[in-house]
């Protein structure tokens, strides 16, 4: 193993016309803690990019030191590191370049500064990503490290996130606004196809509970990145819902109890006009007509509920789910399928 080395401080960064900043952006080799470790298997070794915990006690300018370890069989050259936080969070510098090279097993540290906003109440995931590009090392040319900081607690269940009145009684349609234009499902017509409050719906291998919400009250979620507690283990996460507008698609992120996460894309057809299999969805129920602000109408037109799913890591326990960031995706229920 090579001994540790100290790389000389970086000069002003190419991406930024830096003048006074260089002193705060020194990039130095980490002490050779790795010297005591057993040699890595060159065939399996990959460049390690490590993002440390980020202090989120804002508003503040916080320093983040990214560590890049050359775990490959070759000397690493032309190393550049970029760092990014959540969108809109300013980072300085945008890229830092290491002059010189890193021996096998050596690490380098790159310091970045990031503007951290004031903490807000509620739940948030803050993801930080560092990317290293290089020649030599493991030969891959690039490596990425991420860290997701969890702020606050997820909502206890989907019902806690209900923010939309999607079902109304035909005798009182005014509270409904499923689609932004004051229209809603008819409770009577949903009941006619088996969807009554609290009933169990079987779809895509999962058993889902239709919202136990009175007509005219919030009973579904317009997806906006809400985090929902969900316990279970299985192969798929199934969602029950439908779309409004067009392009009711998005990414659901599933977080497991071990701190890891997986992502899956899904989408729903528009509740009325799209093909029923759009985005790969499965039709679950069709209600005849809908409730409009002035009463029941549009008889003969189907207003529909679909199922769709995203894959799970079946070896892990689900802790919580982050819904897509797309308000057109309306979710009535979700459950784990074995």
């Amino acid at each position: 193993m090579s001994v540790s080395r100290w790389l000389r401080p970086l000069g002003p960064l190419r991406a930024v016309r830096a003048v006074a900043v260089a002193a705060s952006l020194a990039l130095v080799a980490a002490p050779a803690a790795s010297a005591a470790e057993p040699p890595a298997d060159p065939a399996a070794a990959r460049t390690e990019v490590t993002v440390p915990p980020v202090d989120l006690d804002g508003p503040a300018i916080t320093t983040v030191t990214v560590r890049v370890k050359n775990a490959g069989p070759q000397r690493m050259r032309s190393l550049k590191v970029t760092f990014a936080g959540p969108v809109g969070w300013a980072v300085q510098p945008s890229v830092t370049a290491v002059s010189g090279s890193l021996g096998v097993g050596d690490s380098a540290r790159a310091e970045f500064r990031i503007r951290v906003p004031e903490k807000r109440p509620g739940f948030a995931l803050r993801t930080f990503t560092a990317t290293a590009t290089y020649s030599g090392g493991d030969g891959a040319g690039a490596a990425t490290g991420t860290r997701t900081e969890v702020v606050g607690s997820p909502l206890p269940d989907l019902a806690a996130a209900y923010d939309n009145v999607g079902v109304t009684d035909e005798s009182d349609t005014a509270p409904g606004d499923y689609d932004g234009d004051g229209n809603s499902f008819s409770a009577q017509k949903l009941a006619a196809v088996g969807l009554t409050p609290g009933t169990t719906v079987r779809a895509l291998g999962a058993e889902l509970a239709w919202p136990d919400a009175e007509p005219g009250t919030p009973g579904n979620v317009s997806s906006a990145g809400q985090a929902i507690t969900l316990n279970g283990q299985g192969s798929r996460l199934v969602f029950l819902g439908s779309g409004v507008g067009s392009a009711a698609t998005g990414t659901a992120t599933v977080h497991y109890t071990d701190g890891t996460s997986s992502r899956g894309q899904f989408g729903f057809p528009n509740w009325s006009f799209d093909p029923a299999d759009l985005h790969g969805a499965t039709l679950v129920a069709s209600a005849d007509g809908r409730n409009r602000p002035d009463g029941y109408g549009n008889a003969g037109i189907a207003y529909r509920i679909f199922a769709h799913s995203v894959p799970l890591d079946a070896s892990k326990q689900v802790a919580f789910v982050v819904l897509p960031s797309n308000g057109n995706v309306h979710v009535f229920a979700m459950a784990v399928a074995p």
Binding site: A20, V21, P59, A60, I61, A90, Q92, E118
Partner: peptide, 15 residues
């Protein structure tokens, strides 16, 4: 600022 504008620092969004 004669070049110091590149540095992130606090301002009106204070603690």
């Amino acid at each position: 600022t004669r070049g110091s504008w590149v540095n992130l620092r606090m301002g009106l969004d204070s603690r």
